[in-house]
Amino acid sequence: MSPSQNLLSQLCIAEYLVTIILIKSVRCGMAEYRTHMKIIGDILTTTRDDLIDDDGAGVTYLIRKANISHVRISRILNNLVSQGLLEQNTLQGSCRYKISQNGREFLQAYQTFSKFVENFGLAI
């Protein structure tokens, strides 16, 4: 490999990296994307920390706190209940959700590993 070839290749790589930086700086101004895991974390955090009463949180309250659609939250809540992370109670015809012991342990692990992943500039 001749020095001129080497220099040319370095210049190509430098150009390529500048392109990446430009693309990233354009993307920087866009809205933050929330992963599925982050939404689950938000729902569980709400059912643990932000409950108005001991009966649990209603779907409307969770929609407002987690900021997602009714269709999507219904699917996620069913999933969390079936996995034992949330407890579902029916009160006067409406469903109320409370975090279970498994949910608390999951949330603790989620929060710890969120910090771990954030060190790498990533979202869990």
Partner: peptide, 27 residues
């Protein structure tokens, strides 16, 4: 080299957004 520089740039960008100190060390 290219992958590492890319990952480092991404991590620095993430630090600029979130201000997590650990990201500086990883970057």
């Amino acid at each position: 080299f290219i992958l590492l520089v890319y990952a480092a740039i991404e991590t620095i960008m993430s630090y600029l957004e979130n201000k997590k100190k650990g990201a500086i060390s990883v970057a």
